[in-house]
Each structure stands twice: as structure tokens, then as C-alpha cells.
Design a protein around this nucleic acid. Structure first.
Lengths: 251, 251
DNA sequence: ATGCATTTGTTCGTATGTATC
DNA sequence: AGATACATACGAACAAATGCA
């Protein structure tokens, strides 16, 4: 074994990828901030000394990753976008389809993340955040009586307020992404439920119980109640064989 | 307000996007399964009646989403890939950078997901899975004594075995993604630690305690021990101001 | 409000290196 | 080893869209 230089295997890297890498580094490194614009495609092909097709392929990839957006005719060039969980949402949605995630797995994930959020909220919330949550629950109650169509949106608002109060952006984003996937999956079935008003009433009661525990500062209780509420809400739509996995979180 | 037709706002949709959509539907709908190949670019430009560049931009987007891969000269055309969490990993990594996720938030997320995984594993594991976990812990112990460089990989193997035993693919994937991000963030700092062997010994002890609780079927205890262990492992690398958020999970 | 110059979206043609039969 | 078909990359061109004077 000679002590010569250790060569690493090289992979052929496409021209457009090197363009993507450089732009990506500039954005993640803060040299390009949201709202700023990249040079025009023709300018970029000079700077990178590649053809326009290569530049365009690179821009498509950057766009698919949610980092930039280009509009036809814009003399300013592609715009650097502020972060949005859109690509995370997209990849998790395809994950749900392609990896064949069951509804049970998604609901279970929600039970884990949302109960963690409320546990943290119970312990770390500010007064301001508590007020926001209370108002959201109040709006939920109003929606149930006056505007049943807005019930879903009001419910989202409650959970989002709780997630924000958890103080963890990653939890907030992931709860949001998974919730929207779950909601989409069961939307029709819930809309078809003949006893929708009863479902809403029970949901309101559950929210109020959880809120009471949250105000009392009893995080574990709030988390347990939330998991139970979520189980009751979704159990009917989950295959019997998978319900036991959900019940494993109810202790 | 006339009751006329409700028009929806239209957005100009690019040609390459329509190509992407159709291919995406074919894959998610199961018409194209992993291992199969798309027609060649020249064939695709006939089928979609668009130019070569448009096809190529569409393929770049599909590649960025991890759905296909194309190699130069491949007579079979682009290959449809089996699902991999690579794109989820990518988007979460950029999320961590661009959304400025702190190490504390990432570690907190791990504490939530990994403790949920072990709670579920304690209740739903099969004998086979328990054996795999035990073997992984055994390998960890061996690595600590014989091959310290392999300690990290052995640790990953333990956590992955637990995540698999949870029975939830989404939990498994997300723990994997977030773990690799966290590990990358603290890798240098841990490698520089003068007392690495002591860290490993403590880690081993923690793993054994958690494993004991797991064998005893005490999920909540195992979860609590795991959170504590993870806190002890990472607390030093987290800003003092954010440690309280982590402690909120220790009850 | 109207052109005008510039940019993107898209097309077509061509050259080159590569993988498979 | 050669032929064939392929992906990669380049360059020129036109239409539609945009921003600005």
C-alpha cells in the first residue's frame, strides 16, 4: 500500500448542475437575498460561459426547488424568492403517494407532532400567543354556528396558532404540511358525513378541553387530550387493521 | 350579482410544465413504475409535439424532484426511479439554511420524533425487530471499543432500527432526514471534543437504559430516557438561551 | 396611453461524446 | 470493433410578454 495521494471517484457533473450549485451557494450564503434579481439569461450565459439552454435548465431546477421564479419578459431577470415550505409540501405529497403512506401513518404523525406542539405551547407560550389561541378557538365556535363552510379554515387557524406558540418553526411547518395532506385525503368523506353538525360540536368540545388544559399549564394533559380528540376525529376513516397503531399513542 | 358561470383565474402555464404534469401523473398513477423507462427525448418531443429544449427542461424538473434519471447515451431513455427521500432531504436542508432553523429547533424535533418512534416501537415491535435493535446496540458497543470511527454509523443503525420498528414510514424517513442534518452540523465539534471516549461511554450507557425500558415494554419510560439522553448529548452545542426550550420536553 | 428595446418562452439545426447491440 | 441511437451542449431565430421613456 503506497502512501500516494488518495484519489476520490469523480462523477460526471453536468454543466447545468454547476450553474445550479453556484447560484444555490450564493442564495444560501446570503449573497443573494429574497427580492433580489439574478442577471438576465443572456448575461448569465456570459458569466458562466455556457449556452442559454444550459442556463435555462439550471433555472428550471432552481425554480423547482423553490429558490427563484422567472417571468416572461421581465427585464430584471429571475427573482430570488423568500423561503416557502412549498417544495417541502410538494416532496412530502409525492412521498405520500409514491411511498404509499397510509392515512393511518399520516394521522399518527399528526398526533405526534401536534401533541408535541401543544405540550411545548403549554410551557413556553407568551400571553400574547395564548390570547391568539383563545381567539382562534372562539372563531371556531362562531364558525360552527354561523358559517359551517368556514369550519375547516377556522380549525386550521387554531392548530396553526398552537404550532406557532410552540416556538419551533420546523414543527410549525411540518404540522402544516401534513395537516393539509390529511385534510385533502378525508375532505370528501367528511363533507359527505350525514351528521356533520354533530362532528363539529364534538370537535368544539374537544378543542375547549384542550384549551382548558393549556391555560392551566398542564402540557401532558393537553397533549393527551389532543391525541384522543384526533383519534376520535379520524378513526372512522382509518382501516380497522391500522387503528391499533393509532391507539398505541393514547396510552 | 348574476348567477352566471364562475370563471376561475387562469395562469399562463408553460409548455414544459404541462409535460411535467403528464409524466408526474403517469408515475403517481402507477402507469409508469420504477425501473421502467420513458421514451427517448426525440420520441417525447413527437408525442408532446414540443421542441427538444422543452422536453429537456421538463426532464430536468422531473429529475430535480427525484422521479427520473437520465444518462447520456442511454438507448432506453430516462429511467423512472423508485422513491427515495432524497428530495425531501434536500428541501429540508435548504429549509434549515434559508429559514434559519437553529440547532435547538432541529434537536427538539429529533427529541419529539425519536421518542415517539421508541414509544411506538415498545408497543408494536415484533420479536424480529427487537432482535435487530439489540444487535444494533451490541454493534454500537463493539464499535466504541474497537473502531471509534464507526461509532457514528453504528449509532445511526440503532436509531434506524428503532424507527423501522415504530411501523410508521413517515416517522422513519423524517427521523433519518433530520438526524443527518443535525449530525452534519455538530460533526466537527464532536470530533474535536478532547473527551470523545467519555462521550461514547455515556452514550452507550444511555442506549442500554433505553433498550432495557424497551424490552420491559415501558414505552413512556423509554421515550423519557431517550429525550434526556439526547438532551445531554447535544445541550453543550446549543445556545444557553435556547436550552430551556429543549428542557421543556424533559418534564 | 403608445412605442420601443429587452427579456423570456419556444423552436430548430448542429456538433460531440457515450452507451448499447 | 463498428454502427446506431442516445443525451449533452451550443447557437441562431421568432413570438409573446414586460418595463420604461
Amino acid at each position: 500500500m503506497g502512501g500516494g495521494p488518495r484519489f476520490e471517484p469523480v462523477r460526471a457533473v453536468r454543466a447545468y448542475e454547476r450553474v445550479v450549485e453556484q447560484v444555490e451557494e450564493a442564495i444560501e450564503g446570503g449573497d443573494l437575498t429574497p427580492g433580489q434579481h439574478l442577471p438576465s439569461e443572456r448575461e448569465l450565459m456570459v458569466q458562466f460561459s455556457v449556452s442559454r439552454s444550459t442556463i435555462r435548465e439550471a433555472l428550471r431546477v432552481l425554480q423547482a426547488r423553490g429558490l427563484v421564479r422567472s417571468r416572461p419578459g421581465d427585464p430584471n431577470g429571475a427573482e430570488v424568492l423568500p423561503f416557502s415550505p412549498a417544495t417541502l409540501h410538494k416532496s412530502m405529497t409525492t412521498l405520500a403517494r409514491v411511498a404509499e403512506l397510509s392515512l393511518a401513518e399520516l394521522v399518527q404523525f399528526r398526533m405526534v407532532l401536534d401533541s408535541a406542539a401543544i405540550l411545548l405551547a403549554a410551557r413556553l407560550r407568551t400571553e400574547e400567543q395564548l390570547r391568539e389561541i383563545c381567539e382562534a378557538v372562539e372563531a371556531l365556535r362562531a364558525a360552527a354556528e354561523e358559517d359551517p363552510r368556514g369550519f375547516g379554515a377556522a380549525d386550521v387557524a387554531v392548530h396553526d396558532a398552537v404550532a406557532r406558540a410552540s416556538g419551533n418553526k420546523l414543527i410549525q411547518i411540518c404540522t402544516d404540511v401534513v395537516r393539509s395532506i390529511v385534510v385533502k385525503l378525508v375532505a370528501e368523506r367528511i363533507a359527505d358525513d350525514p351528521d356533520r353538525r354533530a362532528l363539529m360540536r364534538r370537535s368544539i368540545r374537544h378543542h375547549e378541553e384542550v384549551l382548558a388544559a393549556l391555560r392551566a399549564g398542564d402540557g401532558p394533559l393537553a397533549a393527551r387530550l389532543l391525541r384522543k380528540a384526533m383519534y376520535d376525529y379520524y378513526a372512522d376513516y382509518v382501516d380497522e387493521s391500522e387503528r391499533s397503531a393509532l391507539r398505541a399513542l393514547l396510552e
